[in-house]
Simulated assay, not measured.
Amino acid sequence: MPTAVIVNAKRTAIGKKNGMFKHLDASDLAAPIIRHLATGIETINEVILGNIVGPGGNVARVASLKAGLPLSVTGLTLDRQCSAGLEAIRIAACFIKAGAGISYIAGGVESTSTSPFPTRARFAPLEIGDPDMGVAAEFVAQYYGISRETQDHFALLSYERSWTSLEQGIFEAEIVPIEEQARDEEFTKKRNMEALLRRAKPLFTDKNGTVTAANSCAINDGASAVLIMEEEAARSQGYTPVLRFVDSAIAGVHPNFPGISPVPAISELLERNKLTIADIDLIEINEAFASKIAACTNELSIPIEKVNVRGGALTLGHPYGASGAVLVTRLFYEVQRMAAAKYAIAAVGSGGGIGMAILFEVVQ
């Protein structure tokens, strides 16, 4: 059976809603990433992008044409809420393994600034439970006993890791500049995060709530994608494989608790591949809310030194459809800085209670 490998990965800087990318729509954000990844490659079978909040239509096709790709390169746009960018990569890998193609650009994009939709879509039927994600994060905190102190600890850790990574130049290799913007907007000014965490008030429930603006992600604009190829074709064309797709898993949980959904997805991956958390060198779980990261690491017994080692969405932001691809992009570069990494996992929990995880083998 053919094997699928990631040979390149890029993202834009992440902008705040109505911030530095407020005048760019989703296709404008995605096109430079697609153009960069496509440069020099012989064949691209398709561009697959996740997109959640509009503008509707086939954003992947529009962005591909803006990027200057041949008319013969088709586009597919999908919506699996916050895991859409990861789903795009999964689909591309499965297409390769099935022999349907040899080369795909896959990822996601979001322009919350230009979204035409005033309210969110429904995640689940109301009679089952359809809470906003912040309310659902509070449900997870209450059900799994995640204190405000614990959430604030994870938020501060994300902030410190992200700023340290910025100061070390870690993010530079990941980013394709757009209109000379090559730095995540959060890094415009360093904040006193400890003070902000202390002062922040509960956002979604009464005064006894634990989820605040300071331990939650922001709303953001950005794009990210990977170049994923059939391994023999990649090597024959002079590319160096970095991550090899091994397996993926999808899991459903109650829509009231979407933040915990990465747990059954990751657990299924580990069981099916006869692995344990001890065998995994790096794990990226989308940091939509600190309660989610705390609950997932607790339930899976993940050592903190293995998860989100460069920070994540709690600091940099969460451009919904792009975030899953941002996780894979982070893994792509991080494993190259490690001496002997063997396995890595990217996972996202989505609105409606859907968890997704992909297992990668590091190509030596």
Rank of each mutant, 00 (worst) to 15 (best):
A137Y: 02
E160D: 11
Y143T: 12
F139N: 15
R35M: 01
G311E: 06
E186R: 08
L270T: 13
P32Y: 12
A9T: 08
F123L: 11
P55M: 00
A136M: 05
G134N: 08
A60V: 01
I219C: 07
S113A: 06
A346Q: 04
I219V: 14
Y104P: 00
E299D: 04
K306S: 09
R330P: 05
G129S: 10
N273R: 11
G56A: 15
E186N: 04
V263T: 03
G134P: 06
L196C: 01
A106R: 02
N308K: 08
S113G: 04
A100G: 02
V7D: 08
R161K: 14
V5Q: 12
T74F: 08
F204C: 10
A294I: 01
N308V: 02
A346F: 07
E231S: 11
V328W: 03
K207F: 01
V59L: 08
I228M: 09
I14P: 03
P319T: 06
R35K: 15
A30Y: 13
G317F: 07
G107M: 08
V176Y: 06
A223Q: 01
S248C: 11
L269Q: 01
S72K: 12
A100S: 13
F171T: 01
T3R: 15
L69W: 07
S248K: 08
S103F: 06
F332I: 10
A98R: 13
R90C: 05
D130A: 05
V309P: 08
C94A: 11
Q237L: 12
R272I: 00
E42W: 02
S147L: 03
N58Y: 05
G355A: 13
R122W: 07
R235F: 02
L327A: 04
A137R: 05
A92E: 07
Y159H: 15
I219N: 11
L71Q: 07
V135D: 05
L71K: 10
N308I: 01
I14V: 09
F139C: 09
L275N: 00
A93C: 14
H23Q: 14
P241F: 00
I33R: 09
P70G: 00
V246I: 11
G107S: 12
I260F: 01
T297K: 10
K201M: 03
R235G: 02
I266Y: 01
L69M: 06
A182H: 12
L269D: 01
I33Q: 13
V328S: 02
D25S: 05
V242E: 15
V242R: 14
T205S: 13
E231K: 14
K190Y: 03
V362Q: 08
N308T: 00
R80K: 09
V242I: 15
S323R: 03
L157H: 01
G324A: 02
D221Q: 15
V363W: 14
G259W: 12
V73C: 07
N273M: 12
A92S: 14
T114Q: 14
Y159A: 09
K16V: 13
I302P: 09
V211Y: 02
R80F: 09
R337A: 13
G353R: 05
T240I: 04
A88Q: 13
T12F: 00
R61N: 03
K306G: 06
C82W: 15
L126Q: 14
